[in-house]
Nucleic acid binder design. Structure first.
Lengths: 208, 208, 208, 208
DNA sequence: CATGAATGAGGATTCATTCAT
DNA sequence: TATGAATGAATCCTCATTCAT
């Protein structure tokens, strides 16, 4: 039984590795061509497998896309990230947090984000999934954190949910502009966390 | 000659009306299905013309997309908008300006924006066009305005271009969240300009 | 009545001129692109008229092709050509006749021939028309002439119809090779009548 | 490794058979309707495969045409044909050679020829290919042979290249007339080699 | 008669998906 | 499981033809 479990586990690991390999390939191809323009053959070639093999791991093309979105699910939102730096002073915390989150969108992750946003904008089903699974939980965590900080008298806002959306919006929008190839943003990307923090705090900071 | 000119002009107007009719239809269809999933037949039916008629007005499907982008070009960026309200106090100006710009993205315009952003994210050619024709000129105007305000001692920023990008980013991001169906944002959309202005100004305002 | 006839005649002449103008254009376009690849718009533009105008003169595209074939009908086969030079000695006659017939296929006429042959090869209806109206009458005239010469003891052949076909074949084939762009033939085209006549009259045998 | 080679070879043979099957079908369809009027569906149905299958073996419709032309390349021109009968007396050789070459154009081959000639007349690219790959090599071989015979004092000609073209022209032209449905030629086809040989060797002149 | 915009049938080609090996 | 050939539905686009002006 142990042997079997081991085999199962090895098996599972193999399957997971294959899925991952295909998702990696799909992310690259989707980022380069968009979901519709990307072909199964493109993905298969990039993954180094045959066309048919893809269908042993994903039911159809859309399932690959969902697989990609679910990856965000795993990597995107980690409450502990917040906890670790929560003790610092507000400005440092904000700067660090923004830097950390921006740092999560580098290279492959930025591609991933690009792919998902683009598709989310044209696919209601995916859009709803993305809202429910990614955006809303993220807002919930952020709000909770914000309320804690407000309780400590560190920040202030009249409408917390809307403020969260504005802040997230700035984050999203900056990523969007970056993806769209804004050259200034690209060359000054490292300066973004500080600027973001200052812009943000000198509005919401009440500690002074 | 006058008669001929008149006829030409009538002809031109007719052609322009047809183009517009097709672009309207295309915007709707693209917004509903995305560029690739939308078919020429969809667009033709929505526009109430035959498939082939489309090709009397646009060279191919992508040209329709470009036509849509160029519409943004016409409607999106108007320096005079800034001039009209420039005399007001900073807070009122900001609130009004944001409200005005957000007001430009209602219904059809929001669809337009959604369509273009989605496609821009997956099409390099279109992306470059969009950056050159829409985003960069908008930044140029905003920067000029910001510098004028800074000279008057009304606002402050270390890195103006980056600040512009952050502000635009917040704007873009809020639209994006709205499009993606965030319910809170939808039901509190009217509160956005005030919140935006306060958040923004208490960061950049130096008049106090 | 005379006035009316005159008007009719002027009218007819005009119609004929327009038809001719369109047929000229069609010949050029067909020669350049082939019947199927040529579009009515191509022909209309080349003729300097509107698309619809074509249909006032020809029922449909194929009717234009038939119009072209019927032109051959008028220009191709003239018994009097033979009569004029029939008194000469056989070699001179042959040389002159070949030169004359080859001379008929220059520039525009060669295009015409190319167009018709190409289409005749892929269109049974046209093929039959061409055989009945052009080839067979030509053979009839040639045969009659050949029989007269044979009766005078000037030439000899066992199977006159087959000999006629062989000779015509050589003629056709040389035109074909010319059309297909054989460079040697093109640069030595003037030498063809002599060579043709000698080959025909004497053969190549030297062993006797 | 041997097994693998065997499999490769079997695979290759299979692919070659499929290509052949499609080319056969295409030849039939092209002969019946011409290249442009023939549809991929026609060809697929005739070949007994699905439309899409065609594209696993040929890049596009024109590639099928090129495949047909290349078949001529393989079957059309064989120097050894000449060598085998070169020892015979001139008249027998000529008769045999003509008979042999004409025999090569029977049924399917005649269709092939028809298809290619028709398309060659309306497609410059194909025309150039055909001249370079089929016609010119054939002329080269014929000329070499003719020069050998002339050196032996067996035949005579002032302008060998032009003479070759005239002879080939007769050959081409007779095929053309045959294809065009000349009934006399059809019913006396067997008499063609003899007549061709006599005409060629002796000419028709009787005056001397 | 001349025009050229509108029409929509038709065709080449692509590509997600299946399935026999 | 892996493969990749086969499938055929789906789509963009062309173009002969019509017809209102």
């Amino acid at each position: 039984m142990i042997a079997e479990r081991k085999r199962d586990s090895a098996q599972e690991q193999f399957v997971e590795a294959r899925r991952s390999q295909i998702l990696d390939a799909a992310t690259t191809v989707f980022a380069a061509k968009g979901f519709e323009r990307a072909t199964i053959r493109d993905i298969a070639k990039t993954a180094g497998v045959a066309d048919g093999t893809i269908y042993n791991y994903f039911e159809n093309k859309m399932a690959i896309m969902l697989g990609i979105v679910n990856r965000l699910n795993e990597s995107d939102r980690r409450e502990e990230d917040l906890r670790q730096i929560e003790g610092m002073d507000t400005r440092t915390f904000t700067r660090r947090y923004i830097a950390h989150r921006l740092g999560m969108f580098t290279g492959k992750e930025l591609e991933l984000f690009q792919v998902v946003i683009a598709e989310v904008l044209t696919n209601r089903e995916l859009r709803d999934l993305y809202m429910k699974q990614i955006i809303e939980p993220t807002f919930a965590i952020s709000e909770a954190h914000f309320r804690r900080q407000m309780a400590k008298g560190k920040v202030n806002a009249d409408d917390i949910p809307l403020t969260m959306r504005a802040i997230s919006g700035m984050f999203l929008g900056l990523l969007l502009l970056r993806i769209m190839g804004d050259t200034y943003l690209e060359s000054h990307w490292d300066a973004v966390p500080d600027l973001f923090a200052n812009l943000l705090l000198d509005g919401i900071d009440k500690t002074e």
